[in-house]
Design a protein around this nucleic acid. Structure first.
Lengths: 128, 128
DNA sequence: CCTTGACCTTCCAGCGGGAGGAAGCCCCAT
DNA sequence: ATGGGGCTTCCTCCCGCTGGAAGGTCAAGG
């Protein structure tokens, strides 16, 4: 299986797959012509990574999750800890964005949005 | 006024101020010793930028907002359009994160988090 | 046999918005 | 004169890719 097929079957761009090899997630064999030869195990890992990334896990979290996935003697507590940490990170981002959104939304609503220069948005950001 | 004072008065790190000069937001004069000499106008701009960045506007949006702020003949509609665009971007980010959060939260709650290897989080990400 | 075009390879640069650090001036107080 | 803090420039790094250049490979068609 060449990279193109691995890409279409995993749903990841070929560029991303090369990058994942670069950071050590997979180590595909090489054909005599230098092309990467993907086995099913690598495809499984790629699919796993695609889903983990879709849940927003960082590369390093993915590395840890992948190791746990491969470790048949893992404790689910370890997985859960990573996931909860990531959940907290998401919550913080949402909180930050929500705060921003609230402030900005007020300003947008207060702005007439016409041809006149007076603007509560700029007024808010202006010193004093 | 040296960069240290400009930093503490604007609330921006000195590094950030140098970066903002680099991208053309300010053009402070230089003392004979090469130190940046900030005037009040530059400090005002920096303060404006600090607030705009706190609302999450990108550097390029800040550039446009700064230009409108300086333009006494601006139309508030132009400001509002930028702000609404940014509001939409924030909403999209929040939506993405909320979707992620929901999916991940379900998985975390379903995971026992004990010493056993069975884990709904990994199961969800595993192929098949 | 030659060409075309799709696929593959490597390497290098860049995105945003700075942060971190090295090497070296400048200036003031002791 | 010595120490310490502030300032300067320049360079690298962060994340997670993404784009492009320059070139090798392969199968089909003329």
């Amino acid at each position: 299986m060449n990279i193109g097929e691995a890409a279409s079957r995993s749903g990841l761009p070929a560029k991303t797959i090369r990058y994942y090899e670069d950071v050590g997630f997979i180590k595909p064999l090489r054909d005599t012509n230098g092309y990467r030869a993907f086995r099913e195990t690598e495809l499984h890992k790629l699919t796993f990574l695609a889903r983990a990334r879709a849940l927003g896990f960082t590369i390093e979290e993915c590395r840890a999750l992948l190791a746990l996935w491969e470790d048949k003697a893992r404790a689910s507590a370890d997985v859960k800890q990573i996931a909860r940490g990531h959940l907290d990170a998401i919550d913080m981002k949402i909180a930050d964005l929500t705060t921003m959104r609230a402030a900005l939304s007020l300003l947008v609503e207060a702005c007439a949005g016409d041809h006149r220069p007076d603007c509560p948005i700029l007024n808010d950001m202006a010193p004093e």
